[in-house]
């Protein structure tokens, strides 16, 4: 492949590396496959969408799909991870606008529930996959999943630093408890059709009781 990249790898004088045409084409193909996969997973769920369907939707051959992704779970994982990364950022941002730790956490939780409620079949597929022995472990142990847990814990830490919660707040343990409750409300959020308001009311009560013992004064 040297002959290709040699000819196209950019302007040697400026020293700036421009992606080769082939690399660009590959990137575009990947993006196209991912977009098609996202549409199909959203419509048909994980089990309902086949690689063949995804290829057709993307307007390419199954071979072209397989040249970019090892299998369906690889595709799904890529979508999940990119969603989780986006979500983590949005949740952190929402939390930063909170007045006090309870409000910050509630805003972060709400962003999560609203995000997955807006794309139910995909969310349902994600939560089913997250319990599969292999894919589930990979998803849960990923840095991306950890980042979500961390940002909740971070809110507790910030509250300790602001003096809102006591120094003995057991930040890590409380953060885990909050995140556990956040996740445990998902069956209500994505399967039982709870409204965002109902979810918020439940989450608010949970946050309160978990933080109450750490409040100062």
């Amino acid at each position: 492949m040297k002959h290709v990249s040699g000819a196209l790898s950019g302007d040697p004088e400026s020293g700036v590396k421009i992606p080769t045409r082939r690399a660009l084409a590959k990137q575009q193909t990947r993006a196209k496959v991912l977009a098609a996969a996202r549409r199909l997973f959203s419509e048909c769920g994980y089990e309902g969408a086949t690689i063949r369907d995804i290829a057709t939707e993307a307007g390419m051959s199954t071979g072209a799909v397989f040249a970019n992704f090892t299998d369906k779970s690889d595709l799904f994982r890529e979508i999940m991870f990119s969603d989780m990364a986006t979500l983590a950022e949005t949740m952190r941002e929402a939390a930063s606008r909170g007045r006090g730790v309870e409000d910050a956490l509630l805003r972060a939780f709400s962003v999560g529930y609203a995000f997955y409620k807006s794309q139910l079949p995909l969310a349902r597929a994600a939560f089913s996959v997250s319990w599969l022995p292999e894919e589930g472990v990979e998803l849960r142990f990923s840095d991306t999943a950890q980042a979500l847990r961390d940002l909740i814990t971070e809110q507790v830490q910030l509250a300790v630093e602001r003096g809102e919660l006591s120094q003995e707040a057991e930040v890590k343990l409380r953060g885990d408890m909050l995140f556990d409750c956040y996740l445990a409300n998902y069956p209500e959020a994505i399967f039982l059709g709870w409204s965002l308001e109902a979810l918020q009311a439940k989450a608010r009560d949970q946050i309160r009781v978990i933080l109450a013992g750490a409040r100062r004064g």
Partner: peptide, 13 residues
């Protein structure tokens, strides 16, 4: 019920 929910969640996880 809030406490029960929290306990059930934490226990499961």
């Amino acid at each position: 019920d809030v406490v029960v929910d929290a306990l059930m969640a934490i226990y499961a996880w």
